[in-house]
Nucleic acid binder design. Structure first.
Lengths: 145, 145
DNA sequence: TGCTCTATTTTTAGCAA
DNA sequence: TTTGCTAAAAATAGAGC
């Protein structure tokens, strides 16, 4: 039979075959990533969008990014998170947080940061207050469900 | 010789071997990702942190995420980006953009969005104004160089 | 860390369910 | 979209540069 036949690495035209290959190879990719992590202690985060747009993730993107951004120094959002934690009024809680974010953004030099890097720093900020934000924090995986 | 010998998928103690395996397998992982993309038309984004903390990326994380967030509707940042584009005063440009971001954040329900999802939406917002932000936008790759 | 070499182990293409 | 089967293709451990 044609089992194991050599193929070219190019776009698979037949949709059915393309989806089967996607399913198999995505699984293989994630397995390799998992092995790389457990063998070398590396951190791997993967996001894959299928040909139909369905998202799949592997690894903890939050943690992977957080590792690289130890802490954004000189931030004011920390205190913001604190006060949010202390007053239990549900209405004012998110409001103070939002104000904190705006205060923080005021200090950012958009010209230098660009968009994604800025977001990553914002994320890092929020990570630093994870304990206080816990119940409002979605994991990357949950977001793409 | 011991070539191709079967191994267990577990932490490699000997540091030299661990680094060699990391190097080889990371390369293999990225190759698999590349093949998955070109064969099935999927989008793959990977971030790997080596055992020593050095980051490596594969694929365009910006595009991968942008694909999943077509457009955040009913935003006000668009007009902000517009006016930024129109007035050429270098000083006021980033300032108006930051104000726009704050205005936008004011409208976000932090209680519902969480941190990362919120950032992704923020990113989507900026993506929508990519043409106007082009020169201030860093790629995910550049960020980790 | 990166590449070469090679015996073996893994992954996987094509079919079928 | 996912899984099982199986022969062939690809990845890779270990050793050396």
């Amino acid at each position: 039979m044609g089992t194991g036949k050599k193929i070219e690495i190019k776009q698979i035209i037949k949709e059915a075959s393309r989806m089967v290959t996607f399913s198999k190879r995505r699984k293989g990719l994630f397995k390799k990533a998992s092995q790389l992590e457990s063998m070398t202690g590396a951190r791997v985060a993967i996001v894959v969008f299928s040909p139909t747009g369905k998202p799949y993730t592997c690894g903890d993107v939050n943690a992977a990014i957080g590792t690289h951004f130890p802490r954004f120094h000189g931030s004011e959002i920390g205190s913001c998170g604190s006060q949010y934690h202390e007053n239990g009024a549900s209405g004012s809680r998110s409001f103070s947080l939002k104000n904190g974010l705006c205060d923080w953004l005021e200090k950012i030099d958009v010209e230098e940061c660009g968009n994604l890097s800025e977001m990553l720093l914002l994320k890092e900020q929020l990570e630093g207050n994870r304990d206080k934000l816990a119940e409002h924090t979605e994991s990357f995986e949950a977001l793409f469900m």
